[in-house]
Each structure stands twice: as C-alpha cells, then as structure tokens.
Computed example of a mutant assay.
Amino acid sequence: MKPHVICHMISSIDGRIVVKHWPDPASMRGEYERTADTFDADAWMCGRITMEDFAAEGSVSKPAPASPLPRTDFVARKDAESYAIALDAHGKLNWESGAIDDDHLVAVLTESVSDAHLAHLRERGVSYVFGGKQDIDFARVLEKLGDTFGIKTVLLEGGGGINGSFLAAGLIDEVSLLIHPTADGLPGTPTLFDRPQGSTGAGAALELTHVERRDSGIVWLRYRVRR
C-alpha cells in the first residue's frame, strides 16, 4: 500500500527554498518543525543534497567486503516509531549510525552502488531499499516503504528536484506550504518544484484546503492534489 505523501516545505514569497541567507532563521525553523509535528507522520524524506546536513562529515573508511553483496533490500530495523528516508541513488552519503535523532535511517539506492558502500550501511545499522538499476522508481520505493516498514504517512521535504519528480509522477497527495515573509530573488536557486529536464504539459492542479497566519508573518497554506 502506497503511503500518503505530504510535501511539507517553507519558501520565500517567490517560491525559493534555500533558506540559509534569509532573516530570522530561528523562528522560521521553529514554525516549520511545529507545523510538521501536527501531521504525526511515520517518516520524513529528503534528497541527497538536503540530507548532507545529517550525514557524516569528512571521509569514512569503507573497505570492500570479502564477497559481493546481493542487490536485495536490507532491513536493520522495522519496528521504529518513525523513519528518516534518504534518497541517495548512487551511495554518496556516509553515516555515523543508523538513526537521525530518534528516527531510524533508511537509504534509498540504485543497484549501481558499490559493495563497499552497502557494507558500510550494514555496519552502521542503516536499512536500505533499492529503487531500480540506475534510476529510482519513486512509486516502487513508496510501496516498499509501506510494505516493509509499515509506513502510512510520509513528509516529503525536498529539495526542488525531488519534489518535482514526485509531482510529475503523480505521487504527492497534499502540499503543506509555509510562506516566509522574504522576497529572495536570488537567481538560479531551487524552487519548490523543479520538474525533470524535458518535462512538458500542464502542472498539477491543487485545491486549497486551509489558510492560517502563523507567528513572524508566516502564512500556512494546505492544498489537496486533484486527481
């Protein structure tokens, strides 16, 4: 069963999502996390670039195992109360442990990753699932997360390329958007949804379901994705 996917993001009024140069970062982070908690989700999911903030710093020794490892899913733990899902197609992220805070870590990989990286994940207690040979099939991954870990609700938290790919594949059910009172205007920075190169056709139609003013001039908008 596919989990319910809520794309939960914060953006400037012009739709940009790189927040490090925005004013008032403490209140922004507080409102973002407080709002995320209202969903009581089983898991949160981010792409590789976003997940770099949580990964191990510097180089990590990853000796190759004595024999090749099978390209089958590995479950280090399936009874966690919550999960952190790292979309890391080519195995570029290294980890200190199998948890981010209290959330069990699940890496989403392709079969192109090295045996040494798989051994590293196993040694650290990180679960992993395969999404395809060279590219990730996001629909397949969601089904695995539901079937294997019992995940029912996922907060999809970017970046823009991941959000855009999920949107283009029709896998997002709701959008939760906090609009920060910042006019960014920085050219070339990611936006909420950056569809894959070569995408054509109309964007997704949304239905507004909630509007709320939050602290520090932030506005919370919720949408249902129309099918």
Rank of each mutant, 00 (worst) to 15 (best):
D40R: 13
K2A: 15
I6G: 01
K144R: 11
A84R: 01
T191I: 09
A84V: 09
A205I: 14
H4N: 15
D53Q: 07
S176C: 15
P196Y: 09
N163P: 10
G203M: 07
E143P: 03
P23V: 12
L192Q: 04
I13P: 10
H180C: 15
R71T: 00
A41D: 04
G131F: 00
E96P: 00
L208Y: 12
S127N: 07
V211T: 12
G170N: 09
G30N: 12
D37E: 05
S165I: 04
K133R: 11
Y32Q: 05
E143Q: 14
A84M: 12
V126W: 04
I218A: 00
P25F: 13
L208F: 10
F166Q: 00
P3V: 04
C46Y: 02
G217L: 11
S59P: 02
L177F: 11
G217C: 06
A86S: 11
A89F: 07
S82E: 12
A202M: 13
D215R: 10
A43G: 07
Y128M: 08
F74M: 14
P25W: 13
L93C: 06
T209K: 15
R29C: 13
E52P: 06
V5W: 00
G131Y: 08
E96W: 05
T148N: 01
R77E: 01
G150F: 15
L69R: 10
D79M: 03
R29K: 13
T182L: 10
V175M: 13
D102G: 06
H21F: 14
G161P: 02
A119R: 03
G125M: 04
H210S: 08
V75D: 05
A55S: 13
G131R: 03
L142Q: 09
G201H: 13
T35C: 14
R48Q: 02
E157V: 05
P181A: 00
L121S: 00
V75W: 01
G125Y: 10
S27Q: 09
V19F: 03
D14S: 09
